[in-house]
Design a protein around this nucleic acid. Structure first.
Length: 885
RNA sequence: GGGAGGUUAGCUCAGAGGUAGAGCGCCUGUUUUACACGCAGGAUGUCGGGGGUUCGAUCCCCUCACCUCCCACCA
């Protein structure tokens, strides 16, 4: 059909009723609304049917959907839709996270732009502003998940700061506190001066950094040359309260029992002997001890009862204790101190040195070890059961290789610093009464009276909890825990958790610990840890310009194409590589589906399409039905294994290469033939295959398939709950598969012959199938397929006969062919034949050698040897067909 | 310093102890009336290097090289 623009520029109406290319925007929103309206995302179905439950990894409430989310949520939605079609009672719970540091920082920055300082504003006002920000820009991501097609049960939407979830947090805190698993104490923690808060070990990212190792001479009365200490952080020396040597180090034995004088400050420093801290091999064997600014030094301080002097404050500036350096930034102070030491002749050396510096995951500031009072979770008692759960199989990781990483981390786990000096988050439910008694209480308003002294005046701890403290409760707090709700009973524990491996420790491990502690059950049976999305093999970054915005991609290609691309990119490895080219190809696939449907509708509309289960099936019918069974089995197996790439590829290959390229072309002549019965059967088979293919694909491409489903079946919006094709291996028809595949191979050879000989695409070929062929068992079927072969191959003649003299000969699928082109065709390039002969000769030589190898004949399985024999026979026939050199 | 993973077609990646695969890209032909986001045909790989086990290894083992990532308090 020619397309001519009309006056108004619109395309003319398509006679078939469907445009040639489809516009996803036409139906995506419509289907989503319909599914939602009809309650498809809510768990329904027979109460006896198995359930399938997931909770979403809650994105930041003010965040935007990025390609990593899009990937993870697509995977979850595929699982949810697949299980739903398997008639499970599916529940996938949506929600968002308050994301303490991240959100607070954004709001703080916004305020700063307007010249407003957080501290000047005050805590309450500031928190109001954050809520405002959350109202303005929050939940956008939820709409974006809808665009992606996620079948989340919106009636159960949760936010980590919801009253019920906040209560769960307080309850959990109190439980742990009462059990002695939460304690408060003064320790050296990781402190981010940029964020102004303590952070956990996990939030510190170590980076190799070039620095200097300074060697500084401290005077030691009675020891003429004093002591030379080595440090990468000279500014902390102002807080030194000792120097340490190894008890068995002869080099420094003369320092034993002496006192050193701290340069600049003049403080007397005892020389302590500590075998744990000091490595005799390193540097001078003398270590400065700064208990307030180094975790190891802190431990030494504890062992030797040393005081701790805080010289760097929470803002990263030197404190009053730093004397003349007070108020200086820590790095500036370093410069000045080094300059001064040099001036005084105390700087013995400053050698280039590579150090692992800790940076704040959030702000990228250099993290300071900082002595301060914090809350901690005693983690060992929680880790033990969590390890057991995995060891005993109550929780399994997919891919399995993460198990080991999990154990390694859990075995070396350290107490978790959970207090944050922030305002946005769950405030620690700890209260100090007027008489200084500490009490914890889960009531939002705090305790009524002090249990110790009865005082009614309290000050609440100013800190908030690490965001992950609330996240670890997510799989059950969303269901109302600690209340014994129906949902908790019905849907907890969940089945599958899907998330990136980067939060295995942050979140997954902690959920397992918390789940076991608070509910006695592992929160999920299976954890699918996927790789991180990369674009073209590289991390996405704005400077590289390779960022893919999933929403832009949805606009451009449609949600289904984006989802198919992501599913195809899945792999078991640590990276998920996404490319734009893949999006194009996915969109082409969607268009292909569309067009195949248009064709089918032309054939099916207003016509009977009997159930193909009746007899009278042709070989192509049997073939495609068998391939459908094989594909369905395969797809289910791959989904079971979280191999979304393989599942996508299986449907793609079936739909495009077998159903469209193969079956559709095979039935076209049947459809126009006068044999009405055969045509009707083909229509029935076509409908059956198309419906099943569309159903198979629905979890991956939900919108388009629902649209097509409606056109095919006349049913509106029901595909989402239609039974998923599972595939039955007993319904494979291997004989039909072999025959039709042989025919297709012969077709390819005939077409290739034309190209090879420079004949036109339509040049008639006379073909003979040699009854003496190695695979002659196929001949009866090929005879039945003869008319089709003749039609598709544009043959002028087809006979079962030995090849004529002068025919071009070859062996395909074990059938010896004789092919004859009309006169005048160009001869094939001799060098090409030469090369082909070479390849065959090589393989023949190889196989013959194998078959003459006694060890091979004896040890290789009989089936393999037999296969080799067959192959050799076929090759010899092929070689013979090629003629002499 | 430990640990994990990777190295396969120009690109991005699958893959199994028994003759190497996909998508994209490339070449050739093609308005074969569902689809040019198509159809048909085609080319391309010492499966990182070296050694071992095996009748047979790209797939298992050892080793080397390079890459990625995790974990770790050596000043």
């Amino acid at each position: 059909m020619r397309e001519e623009p009309l006056d108004n520029g619109r395309r003319p109406e398509n006679p078939e009723g469907l445009p040639k290319t489809f516009d996803p925007a036409q139906f995506e929103a419509r289907w989503y609304a319909l599914w939602e309206r009809e309650g498809r995302f809510q768990p329904t179905g027979a109460s006896g049917s198995p359930r399938f439950v997931m909770v979403i990894p809650p994105p930041n409430v003010t965040g935007r959907l990025h390609i990593g989310h899009a990937y993870g949520r697509t995977v979850e939605d595929i699982l949810a839709r697949w299980k739903r079609m398997l008639q499970h009672r599916v529940l996938w719970v949506p929600g968002t996270d308050h994301a303490g540091i991240a959100t607070q920082m954004v709001v703080e920055r916004n305020l700063a732009k307007r010249g407003i300082d957080r501290k000047a504003l005050g805590r309450e006002k500031f928190i109001e502003r954050v809520w405002e920000w959350r109202r303005e820009s929050g939940d956008l991501i939820l709409g974006q998940l809808r665009r992606l097609g996620c079948s989340l049960d919106w009636s159960r939407l949760r936010f980590t700061l919801d009253p019920a979830l906040s209560r769960a947090v307080r309850h959990a805190f109190v439980l742990l506190y009462r059990d002695g698993l939460i304690y408060k104490g003064r320790y050296v923690v990781n402190w981010c001066p940029g964020c102004g808060t303590a952070v956990s070990d996990l939030e510190v990212v170590e980076k190799e950094t070039k620095g200097l190792l300074y060697k500084i001479r401290y005077d030691v009365p009675g020891v003429p040359d004093g002591a030379v200490v080595a440090t990468t952080r000279p500014e902390t020396m102002l807080g030194d309260t000792a120097i340490a040597i190894h008890p068995e180090d002869p080099r420094n034995a003369r320092l034993r029992g002496k006192k050193a004088i701290l340069p600049i400050v003049g403080r007397e420093l005892p020389v302590v002997e500590d075998a744990i801290l000091v490595d005799r091999e390193f540097g001078t064997g003398v270590v400065k001890v700064t208990p307030a600014h180094d975790a190891n030094d802190f431990a030494v301080g504890q062992r030797h009862h040393l005081p701790a002097v805080v010289v760097i404050g929470p803002d990263g500036k030197m404190t009053e204790a730093a004397g003349e350096y007070a108020g200086l930034d820590r790095f500036e102070a370093r410069k000045r101190i080094v300059a001064r030491l040099e001036q005084e002749g105390r700087l013995v050396a400053a050698e280039p040195h590579t150090i692992n510096l800790g940076f704040c995951q959030r702000s990228d500031d250099v993290v300071e070890p900082y002595l301060s009072e914090q809350w901690f979770v005693k983690i060992q008692p929680l880790a033990e059961p969590a390890m057991r759960a995995v060891r005993e199989g109550a929780v399994r990781f997919v891919p399995e290789s993460w198990t080991r990483t999990y154990f390694t981390w859990m075995e070396n786990i350290r107490d978790w610093c959970i207090s944050r000096q922030l305002w946005w988050g769950h405030r620690i439910p700890a209260f100090t009464c007027a008489n200084g008694h500490l009490t914890v209480d889960e009531a939002e308003e705090g305790p009524q009276a002090c249990p110790t002294c009865g005082s009614r005046e309290f000050v609440q701890d100013p800190d908030v909890l690490d965001t992950w403290f609330s996240s670890q409760l997510w799989p059950f707090s969303v269901f109302g825990w600690p209340e014994k709700t129906e949902d908790l009973k019905n849907f907890y524990p969940t089945d599958v958790l899907v998330t990136g491996y980067d939060i295995l420790f942050f979140w997954v491990a902690r959920m397992i610990m918390a789940g076991l502690r608070f509910t006695g059950k592992a929160p999920f049976a299976t954890v699918h840890l996927h790789g991180l999305v990369r674009v073209g093999g590289e991390k996405m970054s704005k400077t590289k310009g390779n960022v893919i915005d999933p929403l832009e991609a949805i606009e451009e290609f449609g949600a289904d194409a984006v989802r198919f691309t992501l599913a195809s990119a899945a792999s078991s490895g640590p990276t998920v590589s996404v490319e734009r080219g893949r999006m194009d190809s996915a969109r082409s696939f969607a268009t292909k589906l569309w067009n195949a449907t248009r064709f089918a509708l032309m054939q099916l509309e207003g016509r009977e399409a009997p159930d193909p289960k009746g007899r009278g099936l042709s070989l192509p019918d049997r073939w495609i039905l068998s391939r459908l069974q094989a594909t369905a089995s395969d797809v289910n197996r791959q989904l079971e294994a979280f191999r979304f790439d393989e599942a996508s590829a299986a449907i793609y290959a079936f739909f495009w290469h077998e159903l469209c390229d193969g079956y559709l072309e095979m039935i076209k002549p049947v459809l126009v033939s006068p044999e009405a019965e055969a045509a009707d059967t083909a229509r029935g088979v076509l409908r059956h295959c198309l419906e099943n293919a569309v159903a198979l694909l629905h979890p991956i491409m939900p919108f388009l398939t629902e649209e097509i489903w409606e056109k095919l079946t006349g049913k509106t919006g029901t595909l989402i709950v239609s039974p998923y094709p599972q595939g039955d291996p007993s319904r494979r028809d291997l004989a039909a598969e072999a025959s039709v595949e042989a025919m297709r191979a012969i077709l390819t050879r005939v077409r290739n012959l034309r190209t090879e000989r420079g004949a036109s695409r339509t040049a008639p070929v006379a073909l003979t199938l040699d009854p003496g062929s190695p695979s002659r068992a196929l001949l009866p079927d090929l005879t039945v397929l003869g008319p089709l072969l003749t039609h598709l191959g544009r043959l002028s003649d087809l006979r079962v006969a030995a090849p004529d003299a002068g025919a071009i000969r070859d062996v395909v699928a074990g059938i010896q062919l004789g092919m004859r082109l009309p006169e005048g065709s160009t001869a094939v390039a001799e060098e090409r034949v030469e090369k082909a002969r070479g390849v065959v000769d090589d393989e023949i030589a190889q196989l013959s050698a194998k078959l003459q190898n006694a060890a091979y004949l004896e040890k290789a399985p009989a089936a393999v040897v037999e296969k080799t024999r067959l192959r050799l026979r076929e090759l010899e026939a092929k070689r013979a067909a090629m003629g002499p050199v």
